[in-house]
Write a protein that binds this DNA or RNA. Structure first.
Lengths: 113, 113
DNA sequence: GTAGCCAACATAGTTAACCTAGTTAGCTTG
DNA sequence: CAAGCTAACTAGGTTAACTATGTTGGCTAC
């Protein structure tokens, strides 16, 4: 599940879960799958899942309760209606373009400092 | 250094560093002590120091540069803990700004290679 | 029937080890 | 002298193991 892009795995998982919360797939108050489940689902180690959950916890999107689970915060509102998937894909494409151009500039700079 | 309160060590260290940034003891652009130094100073393991730095990095207060160090961001404007409704427009504005700056760099490189 | 114990599962924190990769200073060699 | 190598440092990512602690459900003993 976790792809071998430059982005580290624990951020990929955090991104995915964050997107599920923003899209409403995970509604406020709903529990996330347990860390072991998430590790199986994303085919990642338990450690990276715990890191990913820690990121979301740090962002205040979720709240962990020892012994029970990790729950989506009530105030975590889903994405606004104008947030269409088309815009998201366009943003991703722009980011991809910027990354590639920046990589070329960086390599050119390292060749001729 | 890390006290045995209920607050976990990596958050105590993050709090302390954040306070140093906020108070001006660590000015923008200034490097934090290396992780090994911080581990010695706070008498903590390297792991908790890395967690603490990761928290600040996630908050946008510092930027880590592999091989060099971790530096206080010039515009210490932390990311909003909660997704605002116009987050998409803000992202688009950021992308626009990045595109323009990158275009200038590219043209400067092509003019003077 | 119920009170209490216990096993299973949950998050959370900590530590240690290993790997990748970038930077820098200094030395060595051609 | 200059190019290049090397060693020592840096951050970052991943994994595994251990501990602590809270929750839950089922079983047992009375």
């Amino acid at each position: 599940m976790v792809k071998n892009t430059g982005r580290p795995g624990y951020l990929q998982i955090a991104d995915d879960l964050r997107e599920q919360i923003r899209s409403g797939a995970l509604t406020p108050g709903a529990p996330l799958p347990s860390t072991t489940r998430l590790a199986e689902r994303y085919e990642a180690s338990l450690s990276v899942v715990k890191l990913a959950v820690g990121v979301l916890r740090n962002e205040g999107l979720v709240i962990g309760q020892q012994g029970k689970g990790v729950f989506v915060r009530e105030s975590a509102a889903p994405a606004p209606p104008e947030a269409s998937s088309d815009e998201l894909t366009e943003i991703r494409a722009t980011l991809q373009d910027l990354s590639e151009r920046l990589a070329r500039v960086e390599s050119a700079l390292s060749d001729r400092p």
